Simulated scan of single mutants.
Amino acid sequence: MHSKSIKWVAAALCVLPLVAAAQSFPTQNVRIVVPYAPGGGIDGMARVLAERLQQKWGKPVIVENKPGASTIIGTVAVTKALPDGHTLLLTSEATVTSNPYLFDKLPYDPARELVPISELVSLPQMVVANPSVPASDMKELVALAKARPDSLSYATYGSGSLPHLLFEGINARRGVKMTQIPYKGITPAVTAVLTGEVQLTLAGVPAAEGYLRAGKLKALAIARRERLPGMPQVPTLAEAGFADIDPHESWFGLFVTGGTPTPVVQKIARDVAAVAADPAFIERYVRSRGFDPVFSTPDAFAKFIQADRSQKEKLIRLTGAKAE
């Protein structure tokens, strides 16, 4: 036999067990690790996805909440798992695109120890203000901050959070001084703007939408590639001239342990895409919760992560944000 033919046959024999493993996947219970506490948006997404995948796979799909240490505890549990596809991670952008630059040292390498499966949903973020703030857009906000130094404060949920990166980016780039007031999550941050404790924040559309429609908050811009169809009057940060400090939307994504065979990764991705192909699922569990459905391929997700990491690195370095 020709040497090239021998090599081809040898390569084919190596691939066959991997393909067989993918076809029989899963062979046991599947865990979806969520590095956040129960009850939030990520947890809710994990549970509806687990339910649908369990129906498809005929094996139990269990959601395990492992919160703590800025998502590090849950993430490390996945990176240390067997690379066979039976342990998944459903997390937000913080784990993969912010933590590498907020921490001097991480006990995991997201580029090497996690394999992207799919960006599931994106959560557009809006710059919102208390109605008492005499600014109707970002340009007026900067002018107000310059005219009244130290008069404006903004709510965040900690150093390196999206509101912190945006407003500190404005401070650095536009030479103004707005003061950070940290809260224990986005809900108390939005409440602080509603009550006038602070004047501004960057909030996910689901958290702010009802208050915007009631006139209790006003939107100055949106961190999104295009304007939101439901609020076409609100410009994007890029349109407002702030593309350089746009922290981008928040997102939820699905990952698997690094080293998992590619055919298994592709099977999981196909099965997740099949769940998302149901319009009733998208309407009930995605759009109705204020999320934008994405459900990308592994390749598209990997490219998206690269761009998002680049922007987060730039903003974290610009603002000097550090993990607390």
Rank of each mutant, 00 (worst) to 15 (best):
E168R: 11
K184V: 09
E93N: 14
L102R: 06
S118L: 05
T187G: 14
K177V: 07
T179Y: 00
Y157K: 01
L89Y: 08
L165C: 06
R148L: 08
M138I: 08
P188H: 13
P107Y: 08
P83F: 05
R112W: 00
S98V: 03
S161W: 09
S161K: 10
A147P: 08
A111R: 09
E168W: 02
F167Y: 14
K177I: 03
S161Y: 04
E197L: 10
S161D: 12
L165D: 03
S132E: 02
P100D: 13
T156A: 09
M178P: 15
Q180M: 12
T91V: 14
T79C: 06
Q125D: 06
E168G: 03
F103Q: 03
P83V: 03
I181N: 11
N130A: 04
A94D: 07
P188L: 12
R148S: 15
L102D: 05
V128T: 14
G169K: 12
Y101V: 12
I186K: 09
L123M: 14
V128L: 14
T187R: 14
G185P: 10
A77T: 09
V127R: 08
L102K: 13
P131G: 13
L141R: 12
S122A: 12
L89R: 08
P100E: 12
P131E: 06
F167A: 04
S122G: 05
T97R: 02
L106T: 07
S153T: 06
T87K: 04
T91R: 03
S98D: 13
K80L: 05
L144M: 03
L123S: 06
S132N: 07
V133D: 01
L82P: 01
E140Q: 14
K105I: 00
A111V: 07
Y101C: 06
F103D: 08
I181E: 13
T195Y: 00
L88K: 01
R173W: 02
L90Y: 00
